[in-house]
Design a protein around this nucleic acid. Structure first.
Length: 586
RNA sequence: CGGAGCGUAGCUCAGCCUGGCUAGAGCGCCAGCUUUGGGAGCUGGAUGUCGCAGGUUCGAAUCCUGUCGCUCCGACCA
């Protein structure tokens, strides 16, 4: 490709609405332009990178036997009602209406359509396993689009759906996808690692997310340096809080005492009360699927809402409003407790975190504004309906398996694999007949990769002060030929033309910067875009019979003119091999 | 939706507080000359419904009200 024949509008200054490095560089390097918040037009270079990632994804999907289909984005709402997600996923669904005022939805993902397809087309165990995938545009009514392509209203996703005869077979399908994902990200030159994940509204019971470590990521990952454990913080567990929970009885009965104006854990921990946070019981009022519930945690712990949803089986949970709190407990936040003698609403389920098991000598609110209880023994004074893990893991706590301290870091989620089970196949009648002629629901899995997000994650992971550092496998062009004179009969331009023809014939992806610009402009642009190899063709070095190779982020080297084409090919081959070596064999 | 901030040239921004002359700068763009190894220099030029609507005023980019859009923080996710 010749630079002047394509469209690469680079920006010298940073657009005001971009916040993180990758977003700025997407715009500055001329890969995309914003239409409006959460919607981007891909320009030629952006399209090239997108196609390269898609190609890698396709190759790896095909390799593990997934088969490509293409599902409409515009979908009838009734199948969404059938699966139940018309309400459970309501917030992300875009609704559109046709001339007849009939409603349609824009697909954020395609479990419903694919399961219906399976219901219609797959009827025998002989037809299983099957794994359908597609790469296409998805729509999500994001509350707040952010960070360019990272969280957009419209984005490119690869989604795959597997159908198996039973759980064991589904695990085989799951594992294949898991391995394919590992290869895909490695081939993209991306350092992504799998972590155990919560399943959220999609449902299912087993799941991993593929994470790219990045300070700007929107997820928190808890991991053990042994490499044996990594989980999304929504899912992560540990051996529990570092400070032990007191279990020694301090009095035969609770004692109510005045705490005027004390409405926070910290205030009660301070003088004159001096009740350490881990000796307090925090009482939260939540509304789970429109029913109020109580959640008890140790004072120094934070509730993990994903766990609350998982343990209660609720599809929606939220903190109660001030009015709802008062209606449930007769006191305001800051003086709440679950002590049985103070509860007035009969049917109020109480969930308690395991860190509180056996706790004694605790302090908690008295459901009377301005009063607390001390000497609380949880087994004696509180009727807990369900004990479970509800707390958010904190850095430094010990790994359940290895006993080593856990660390927490931020990351970008680029892929997600789920074992779905029969949730959708049962609802949508995706049934098959086994050898004995008996009917069973297919056991499903679903698997997503955010293609456009992956693109940006690559930039977020590879950039410096000058611009993007593209890994060779996803670079828009591998080589940028930079003649410092573009006069058609000049030595640099002639050689550039010759190299361009030769390298292109050898299959290399080459862009020829044939712009009549000053060298500085060309160098800055090439560095900004981040082509892996820049070949500088200048009069001076050429007079010495040499030309310069400048790998992006590497050191300048000189090669004899007669060896240039070979040297470039060799460099590309070596670089290619380096990335290939990082890909686990299937 | 809650909180904060911003809308002035293609881009980055000044001007607004304390209303007043012809609305500015840098970059980019166009023409010419010069220059040619890290975003050049000189000369000349084009470019604005000051987000939109209403109000106050002799007079509004500036003050007030409303509205739309964008960005950031929080809840959501590939």
């Amino acid at each position: 490709m010749r630079w002047t024949q394509t469209f690469i509008p680079t920006l010298k200054e940073t657009p005001a609405d971009a916040e993180i490095a990758s977003h700025k560089l997407l715009l500055r390097a001329g890969l995309v332009r914003k239409l409006t918040g959460g919607l981007y037009t891909f320009l030629p270079l952006g399209v090239r990178v997108l196609r390269k990632i898609e190609r890698i994804v396709r190759e790896e999907m095909d390799r593990v036997g997934a088969i490509e289909v293409s599902i409409p984005c515009l979908q009838p709402p009734d199948i969404w009602q059938q699966s139940g997600r018309y309400t459970t996923a309501a917030e992300v669904l875009y609704h559109v209406f046709d001339r007849a005022k009939k409603e349609w939805v824009l697909s954020p993902t395609a479990e419903e359509v694919i399961t219906q397809l399976a219901a219609n087309e797959l009827s025998s165990y002989r037809q299983l396993p099957r794994n359908f995938y597609q790469i296409g545009v998805k729509f999500r009514d994001e509350i707040r689009p952010r960070f360019g392509l990272m969280r957009a209203k419209e984005f490119v996703m690869k989604d795959a759906y597997s159908f198996d005869v039973n759980d064991a077979a589904a695990m085989v399908s799951y594992r294949k996808m898991y391995d394919a994902y590992t290869r895909i990200f490695a081939r993209c030159g991306l350092r992504a690692f799998p972590v155990e994940a919560d399943t959220g509204v999609i449902g299912g019971n087993y799941s991993h997310e593929f994470m790219v470590p990045a300070e700007t990521g929107e997820n928190e990952v808890v991991y053990c340096e042994s490499g044996q454990y990594a989980a999304n913080i929504e899912k992560a567990t540990s051996r529990g809080p570092l400070a032990g929970t007191p279990t020694a009885s301090t009095s035969p009965a609770p004692e109510k005492f005045p705490t005027p104006g004390v409405v926070t854990i910290d205030a009660l921990a301070a003088a004159p009360y001096n009740v350490a946070a881990h000796q307090q019981i925090k009482t939260l009022v939540y509304v789970a699927d429109s029913k109020p519930i109580l959640v008890l945690l140790r004072g120094d712990d934070q509730l993990n809402e994903a766990k609350l949803m998982a343990r209660t089986g609720a599809t929606q949970v939220r903190p109660a409003t001030a009015d709802e709190v008062f209606a449930a407990l007769g006191a305001h936040p800051g003086s709440l407790g679950a002590v049985k003698t103070t509860l007035r609403v009969a049917d109020l389920r109480i969930y308690a975190d395991r860190a509180l098991q056996g706790a004694a000598g605790m302090t908690t609110g008295a459901n009377d504004d301005g009063f607390h209880f001390r000497h609380i023994e949880i087994a004696r004074d509180i009727e807990v309906n369900q004990w479970a893990d509800f707390r958010t893991v904190q850095a430094g706590e010990l790994d359940v398996e290895t006993g080593q301290p856990l660390k927490i870091r931020r990351a970008i989620e680029v892929g997600h694999v789920f074992k779905l089970g029969t949730k959708y196949s049962e609802k949508m009648n995706a049934l098959y007949l086994d050898e004995a002629g008996k009917q069973h629901p297919c056991v499903m899995g679903c698997y997503g990769i955010g293609v456009t997000r992956t693109l940006q994650a690559i930039i977020e992971q590879g950039n410096d002060k000058d611009g993007i550092l593209w890994p060779l496998p996803t670079a828009p062009f591998a080589v940028c030929l930079t003649p410092l004179s573009v006069a058609p009969d000049s030595a640099p331009m002639k050689l550039a033309e010759q190299l361009y023809a030769e390298l292109t014939a050898r299959g290399a992806e080459v862009i020829l910067d044939d712009r009549d610009e000053r060298p500085g402009v060309k160098f800055k642009d090439a560095d900004l875009i981040g082509f892996p190899l820049r070949v500088n063709l200048g009069e001076k070095a050429m007079a010495r019979g040499e030309i310069e190779l400048k790998p992006r982020g590497g050191n300048l080297s000189f090669v004899k003119i007669e060896n240039v084409a070979t040297a470039i090919s060799d460099w590309l081959a070596a670089e290619s091999a380096r990335y290939a070596a990082a890909v686990p064999s299937a």
